[in-house]
Simulated assay, not measured.
Amino acid sequence: AIYLKEFHREANENPLLYSSLDGKPHSLSTDSISLVLKTAANNARKTCSDVPGNVHCHLIRKTKAMDLYKNGVPLPFIMQLLGHESMSTTSGFYAFATLEMMSDAMKKATPSLKNEDKLWKKDEIKKALFSID
């Protein structure tokens, strides 16, 4: 919201991320956006070790989609938002979220169950799942 207020004061059709050339906005190249993102992630990592080592545009896209899903947005809506043609593409990536959500619901319903680490919560499994393109 702060970025939009500062760089998009008028609700116009400028690219979301742009550079100014001759006083006019121009779209950034994919390489430029990747460099800006990498620089921002490196700076953020200095104060927050949770920032992943290889931040890229697709990671942000998947993270936002996962956040929507975990907050109750139906998978078909996310599929449309991401532009997937097949539900299997979308559901393949978000299947482990369903397992985690089901596990959380089961814990709430039956608090006496052991608090064991689930397979999909292990770092090496998460890393494999998040690296799926």
Results as ranks from 00 to 15, higher is better:
residue 74 P to A: 05
residue 108 K to Q: 15
residue 19 S to R: 14
residue 25 P to A: 05
residue 8 H to Q: 07
residue 72 G to N: 05
residue 122 K to C: 10
residue 122 K to T: 08
residue 94 Y to F: 15
residue 128 A to V: 10
residue 4 L to G: 03
residue 95 A to M: 14
residue 82 L to W: 02
residue 39 T to D: 04
residue 130 F to G: 00
residue 33 I to A: 01
residue 86 S to Q: 08
residue 21 L to G: 03
residue 102 M to P: 00
residue 69 Y to A: 02
residue 71 N to A: 08
residue 80 Q to H: 15
residue 32 S to C: 06
residue 89 T to D: 06
residue 8 H to A: 03
residue 119 L to R: 11
residue 19 S to V: 12
residue 56 H to V: 02
residue 47 T to A: 11
residue 50 D to R: 14
residue 43 N to Y: 06
residue 70 K to R: 15
residue 91 S to M: 02
residue 57 C to S: 15
residue 8 H to W: 04
residue 62 K to S: 04
residue 44 A to R: 13
residue 42 N to M: 07
residue 30 T to I: 10
residue 129 L to R: 03
residue 118 K to E: 12
residue 50 D to Y: 10
residue 9 R to F: 05
residue 84 H to K: 04
residue 97 A to L: 08
residue 128 A to W: 07
residue 103 S to P: 02
residue 74 P to T: 02
residue 46 K to R: 13
residue 62 K to G: 02
residue 90 T to C: 03
residue 77 F to A: 10
residue 86 S to D: 12
residue 113 L to G: 08
residue 13 E to S: 08
residue 40 A to R: 09
residue 38 K to V: 02
residue 42 N to S: 10
residue 110 T to V: 11
residue 24 K to G: 00
residue 43 N to L: 10
residue 40 A to S: 07
residue 4 L to C: 13
residue 14 N to Q: 14
residue 36 V to F: 06
residue 98 T to G: 11
residue 103 S to Q: 13
residue 67 D to C: 06
residue 58 H to G: 03
residue 46 K to M: 11
residue 123 D to W: 05
residue 16 L to E: 09
residue 64 K to Q: 10
residue 42 N to Q: 12
residue 88 S to P: 00
residue 126 K to L: 14
residue 105 A to D: 13
residue 129 L to M: 08
residue 93 F to W: 01
residue 125 I to V: 15
residue 37 L to E: 01
residue 103 S to I: 05
residue 78 I to M: 03
residue 31 D to V: 08
residue 32 S to Q: 14
residue 117 D to S: 15
residue 3 Y to R: 03
residue 119 L to Q: 08
residue 37 L to I: 06
residue 34 S to C: 05
residue 44 A to V: 09
residue 95 A to G: 11
residue 41 A to T: 02
residue 71 N to W: 04
residue 43 N to K: 15
residue 75 L to D: 00
residue 56 H to T: 02
residue 121 K to R: 12
residue 37 L to K: 00
residue 71 N to S: 09
residue 69 Y to C: 01
residue 65 A to Q: 01
residue 1 A to N: 05
residue 88 S to R: 06
residue 103 S to K: 15
residue 4 L to H: 09
residue 90 T to W: 00
residue 128 A to Q: 14
residue 1 A to P: 00
residue 49 S to H: 12
residue 3 Y to C: 03
residue 37 L to G: 00
residue 112 S to I: 09
residue 14 N to I: 06
residue 74 P to E: 04
residue 51 V to H: 00
residue 65 A to L: 02
residue 70 K to S: 04
residue 33 I to C: 04
residue 121 K to N: 13
residue 65 A to G: 03
residue 25 P to L: 03
residue 94 Y to E: 00
residue 126 K to P: 03
residue 71 N to L: 07
residue 37 L to Q: 00
residue 49 S to A: 15
residue 89 T to W: 03
residue 24 K to A: 09
residue 37 L to T: 00
residue 113 L to K: 04
residue 20 S to G: 06
residue 106 M to S: 11
residue 124 E to T: 12
residue 35 L to M: 13
residue 61 R to F: 04
residue 95 A to H: 13
residue 113 L to W: 10
residue 28 L to S: 01
residue 116 E to M: 08
residue 95 A to E: 07
residue 78 I to F: 00
residue 43 N to V: 11
residue 102 M to G: 08
residue 99 L to M: 12
residue 94 Y to D: 01
residue 86 S to H: 07
residue 119 L to P: 03
residue 57 C to Q: 12
residue 55 V to I: 13
